[in-house]
Amino acid sequence: MRSSVYILILAISTFLAHPFSANAQCKNFAKKICKLELAPYVHDGNYNAAILTEGEEAELFKTFYAGQEYRISVCGSDALSKIEFIVMDVDRNVLYTNAKDDFATSWDFKVENTQQLIIMVKVPVASDSNEELKSGCVAIMFGLKTD
């Protein structure tokens, strides 16, 4: 009886720790792989990464300051084929979509006025309907150009 309780507690703790472990691995992926794509821009110090499954999307709100030049870089693990990212203003007017740019992984731009923008990432379904949906890490990284 005592060993059954021990096994149950071990199983529950393993189940609860798994998402934290996966997120830690995802942030590590962002640090080691995605951050490199920002060069020569200077990383803003934030690692925005999450595990997404085909068909899922996520949004991130970020303030950009007038007169600054930025690079947005989106990368995903090899399990995911293409990742779409869309940059919108707060009224949801599309300012950029990489779908019209052959799914480019980064976009460089300069803002005239300080404003909050919405960055939406979408993981399209690439698998056949008979296959299991794939999941992987998706990171959104921001860089600032310094002279």
Rank of each mutant, 00 (worst) to 15 (best):
S3G: 01
S4T: 15
S4C: 13
V5N: 11
I9D: 00
L10H: 04
L10D: 06
L10C: 13
I12M: 07
T14Q: 06
F15G: 04
L16F: 12
L16I: 14
P19N: 11
F20N: 11
S21V: 15
N23V: 01
A24S: 10
Q25E: 13
C26F: 02
C26K: 03
K27A: 03
F29G: 07
I33H: 14
C34T: 10
C34H: 05
K35I: 14
K35Q: 13
L36F: 02
E37G: 13
L38H: 02
L38M: 08
A39D: 00
Y41D: 11
V42G: 04
N46G: 06
N48W: 04
I51V: 15
L52V: 10
L52H: 07
L52P: 03
T53M: 08
G55S: 04
E56P: 00
E57R: 14
A58R: 12
A58F: 08
L60G: 02
L60H: 11
F61L: 10
F64T: 05
F64K: 12
Y65M: 11
A66E: 15
Q68M: 09
Q68I: 10
Y70G: 08
Y70P: 08
Y70S: 11
R71E: 00
S73M: 06
S73K: 12
V74P: 10
C75T: 10
G76W: 01
S77D: 08
S77H: 04
D78P: 11
A79F: 02
S81P: 00
K82V: 13
E84H: 04
E84W: 03
E84Q: 13
F85S: 05
I86G: 03
V87D: 00
V87P: 02
D89Y: 01
D91I: 04
D91N: 15
R92H: 11
N93M: 07
N93F: 10
N93I: 14
L95Q: 12
L95D: 08
L95I: 12
T97E: 05
T97C: 04
A99Q: 12
A99T: 15
D101T: 04
D101K: 13
A104I: 02
S106L: 10
S106F: 15
S106D: 00
W107Q: 15
D108S: 11
K110E: 01
V111N: 07
E112P: 06
T114C: 03
Q116R: 12
L117C: 05
I118H: 02
I119A: 08
K122V: 14
V125Q: 06
S127L: 09
S127E: 15
D128L: 12
E132H: 06
K134G: 03
K134D: 01
V138E: 00
V138W: 00
A139V: 08
I140Q: 10
M141C: 06
M141F: 05
F142M: 12
F142A: 05
K145G: 02
K145T: 03
D147G: 13
